[in-house]
């Protein structure tokens, strides 16, 4: 079977459209509401869903996603419940590509072979492991190929040309360009810097490139999409969950806010 990510990007390319990727943490604020949030995202015809499985020490994440991970862990989320969430979601949704994002320790402790086997059986299409650079990806290379789960890598403003080649060796699906030097949801990307970097990357790779970190509104997306293949929005969505958790509004209101927010970005 063709990987859903490849299928999605080739479809988008045919109609000259860009991908909108939405990120949420699995099990935040709990498993049940998390499922409802995924449904809302699906209903907005988002192109790709990135689901974070929580880790106690998310080194590359800013305060919004840190808190989100803590809420999820507190509510009992783990690798297993994340796979379960995807499994349930897939019952009614066969097409949208799903990428899991997280840190290496939880999946290593889960058991790598089991993890990839289950990813493939519940319908996970790609994986971003934040703290597994190409120097250490020997742990997973045999599994990503065998189970047809794309190993999606982060490229950053610090990635120079030689390193880029090394990173591309075992990368598939798409490239995730980290638009800022920093952690998720904090700094705003400089559009011009991103443009320059993407031009360099395109000389070496034909993979689609999505841009993420610090993207919060439609203007940014419009500017970035002039040269990217899509944008990732994470902390901005998770903020609605945080406000709900603080008791600022009801679950329905939160779902509506997320829905409206995404609808506006899609316009």
């Amino acid at each position: 079977m063709q990987n859903r990510i490849d299928k999605k990007f080739s479809e988008l390319k045919e109609v000259n459209k860009k991908a909108l990727v939405a990120f949420v943490t699995s099990g935040d604020p709990n498993q049940k509401i998390s499922k409802n949030i995924l449904n809302v995202i699906r209903d907005q015809k988002i192109d790709l869903i990135e689901i974070g499985f929580p880790f106690s020490d998310p080194m590359a994440d800013g305060p919004t996603i840190q808190k989100s991970s803590q809420r999820a862990i507190k509510a009992g989320a783990n690798v297993d419940s994340t796979l379960q969430l995807v499994k349930n979601f897939r019952k009614n949704e066969k097409n949208i590509p799903i990428v899991l994002m997280g840190y290496f320790n939880p999946i290593f402790q889960y058991g790598l072979k089991n993890f990839f086997l289950n990813c493939s059986s519940v319908g996970v299409d790609g994986l971003i492991i934040v703290d597994l650079p190409p120097e250490e990806d020997h742990y997973i290379n045999i599994y990503t190929k065998k189970y047809n789960v794309h190993n999606i890598r982060l490229l950053t403003p610090t990635t120079h040309k030689e390193r880029l080649k090394k990173i591309l060796q075992h990368t598939s699906g798409f490239l995730y360009y980290v638009s800022v030097m920093g952690i998720t949801g904090t700094k705003k990307p400089s559009i011009n810097e991103v443009r320059k970097s993407l031009t360099k990357i395109r000389k070496i790779s034909d993979l689609p490139i999505c841009v993420g970190f610090g993207i919060k509104n439609k203007n940014q997306i419009q500017s970035l999409n002039k040269f990217s293949d899509g944008c990732v929005v994470g902390s901005a969505i998770v903020s609605f969950i945080e406000e709900f958790d603080k008791g600022k509004y009801s679950e329905n209101q939160m779902l509506k806010n997320i829905s409206d927010f995404l609808a506006n970005l899609k316009k």
């Binding site: 703290d131 982060l154 950053t156 390193r163």
Partner: peptide
């Protein structure tokens, strides 16, 4: 060396 890509270089 298990760090985010930004730190690798």
């Amino acid at each position: 060396r298990f760090v985010a890509e930004t730190l690798m270089p």
